[in-house]
Structures are given as C-alpha cells and as structure tokens.
Nucleic acid binder design. Structure first.
Length: 370
DNA sequence: TCGAATT
C-alpha cells in the first residue's frame, strides 16, 4: 500500500471517529468527499444478543423500527465452516438502516432491551478496520472495591476506551466479581495496556491484576457450554427432595455397580467446631463446599449429580490444569441453604466414586500469605 | 488437598 493511500485511510478514520464528514444528501446516503458511502449515521452494532437468536429473529426485531438496508448476525467461522448460516452466533450483529432517523430510533427504543438473560446494547458501529480488531481485554484480580470508573481511569492512559465493564455477582446484586473487560479503540492500545498493567498492582491494591486479550464467546469450550446448560436447568429446580429419596436416587445414580463402601462421615458439628477454621458463610451466593479426590476426568456434571439431590445448588466448578485441561483433583460446589449443604457434606464425605474416596467439607477461608 | 471468573 502506498504512503498516500495509507494517509488517506488514516485521515478517514480520524474524521469518522470524530463524527461523520461529507455531504448529507436530502434523500440518500451520506457521501464522503472521496466517494465512499458513509454509514456512520445508519449502521448500528448490536451487542449481547442471546446465543440462540437467529438471523431471522434479529432482522425481524430491528426491521420493526424501519427499513433495513442490510443486517448481519455475526457467526463463528469454525463451527459454521460447512454452512455460513450454521455457525455459533458470536452474540453480536450489525444493522444498517436506510434512514439515519430509524437508526437513531433503534438506539432509543431497543438499547437496553432485555432478551432472556441478556440486556442488548445498540450503538453506532465504528467503521470496519483491521486496527480496531482484537482490542478487547479481559481483566481479573481487580480489587472488589474498584469501580468501572476507577478501572477506566487506570486503563485510559493507554488509549481511547470504547467499552468497559466489571462483572458483578448475580445473587448479591452488585458485588464485584473482580473481573472485567476493557475494549480499546485500537489493538495497539490494548497491547500497550497489557505491557503496562498485566501483573501490576493498582494503586493501593494488595494483589496484582491480570490483563490479557479476551476470548470470543464462541471460543467457549464445549465444557463451558455444558456448564451453562446445567446452571440454567438448575435454576429451574431448587427444591430439596426428601432425604430418604435423595439417598436412594444418589445410590442408584452413582454406585450401583461398585459395591460402595463408606467411611463413617465426620459430623457437621464436629467440623464446625474445629479450631481456626473459618467457613465461608452465607455471605454472597451461599455455602461453598470443597470436594477433594476427583479423578482427572471429572467434570461439572458429576458435581451436579452428587450434590443436586440434597437441595439448591447454585454453582459447581471443577478446577482444571490450564494446559492439560484435566481436573486437578478438586472442585467447589455452592449451595444456598446451610442445612442442605451440611446434609450433602455428611452424606458425601467418604463417599466412594469409582475407585476414589471423596473428601467433602466446607471450603476454608482463603489463605493469604503472612 | 481449598479456584476462577469471559459481557
């Protein structure tokens, strides 16, 4: 590419990011001075669409506002390799209206619309360009007290921030989960932010933060998708079964063929009275349970099956090695009610699962060094 | 043998 062309493009980008340029015709698209169509007042990007929304539903929703010039639900190339319309939705799309007024109306009426578990975001799309791709960062280890504004302030020294978010706990409605996202205008700004902030402690923070490029929604593993399904299903059913029934179900589910042998389980009262053990209390989501001696092949489904019969389970997690993706031998289960968690522990500690004997207890408080 | 987090 010649230097002159490069300069023209970079000038275009600067102009467009500061607002549309060129001549607005009475009844047609805005034509920029070099003849290219300027979509900046008609073209919208829609984010946080439900995973299962189809192209047709997408078009129908946005077509209800006004005449659409074009629209596209963005799908994954890999999963849709044999059929472009069959790939996993990436959860976002573009809508280009004929009339800029309709684009404006779509933002005003559809931005913030709740669809299933998602709140969609409708905003003007930035012009497509290679330099704005892969500029999204995932940040973890943030102090719980850090606000979105604090985080933006920290990152803004590296470039123009397009979007930011701090994830919050669903149950406690508003407590930071210590992870978030920052999208920069340009990829190189994101790269500089990683260099400057990854592994650094924000002012006054006790622990360093991790800053890396974010995954696409489609890069979610099959396992993560399964977990999501289990969690959705689990929220529909949270009532405890009668304990006799639970025991029976559980034995049938897991042990029928193994000739199960049980250790005498430690009672809950003796556990809670152990000196120096801090239990994770019912603050936040519920009671967190530590499960040890899972096999390397263990997955989330086994934890749901083990604990679900005892009552409301809100979350399960198998801890895996980052590189091998094998279970590191332990996991966590969160249960809403103390009595049900206690019953699950009493019943499952010492439980033989295959050729392993599980150790199950309340999770101890996080050890912090010295 | 007591984590990770992906809008």
């Amino acid at each position: 590419m010649s230097r002159m062309v490069t300069q023209i493009i970079s000038t275009m980008e600067t102009q467009v990011s500061n607002g549309p340029s060129g001549t607005s015709l009475p009844n047609g698209p805005v034509i920029s001075t070099n003849g290219a169509t300027d979509d900046s007042k008609t073209n919208l990007i829609v984010n946080y669409l439900p995973q299962n929304m189809t192209q047709e539903e997408f078009k129908s929703l946005f077509g209800s506002i006004g005449e659409i010039e074009s629209c596209k639900l963005v799908r994954d190339k890999i999963t849709g390799i044999h059929d472009a319309s069959a790939g996993q939705s990436l959860g976002y799309g573009f809508v280009n209206y004929v009339d800029p007024n309709d684009a404006d109306k779509a933002i005003n009426t559809l931005n913030g619309l709740k669809l299933q578990t998602k709140t969609i975001k409708v905003s003007y799309a930035r012009p497509s360009s290679a330099s704005i791709r892969d500029a999204n960062l995932y940040v973890s280890g943030l102090p719980k007290t850090m606000t979105q504004k604090d985080m933006e302030q920290l990152f803004s020294q590296y470039g123009r921030i397009i979007t930011s978010r701090i994830l919050v706990d669903q149950v406690t409605a508003g407590i930071s989960r210590g992870v978030g996202f920052i999208r920069f205008d340009k990829r190189n700004e994101a790269e500089e932010a990683i260099k400057g902030l990854n592994g650094q402690k924000p002012l006054g923070a006790a622990e360093p933060i991790t800053v890396k490029f974010a995954n696409n929604p489609s890069q979610k593993t099959g396992q993560a998708l399964l977990t999501q399904l289990y969690q959705t299903a689990a929220r529909r059913y949270t009532g405890p079964l009668h304990h006799q029934t639970q025991r029976f179900r559980l034995d049938n589910l897991l042990n029928a063929s193994y000739g199960v042998k049980r250790f005498s389980p430690i009672t809950i009262d003796s556990m809670t009275s152990l000196a120096g053990v801090n239990l994770t209390g019912p603050t936040g989501a519920g009671w967190c349970i530590f499960v040890y001696n899972l096999s390397p092949e263990a997955d989330e489904s086994v934890l749901w099956q083990l604990f679900g019969p005892f009552g409301a389970v809100t979350n399960v997690k198998v801890i895996r090695d980052f590189t091998t993706n094998k279970c590191k031998g332990f996991g966590f289960v969160t249960m809403t009610n103390y009595d049900e968690a206690a019953m699950a522990i009493a019943s499952l500690n010492g439980y033989r699962l295959g050729d392993r004997v599980l150790q199950v207890s309340f999770k101890t408080s996080k050890q912090h060094k010295a």
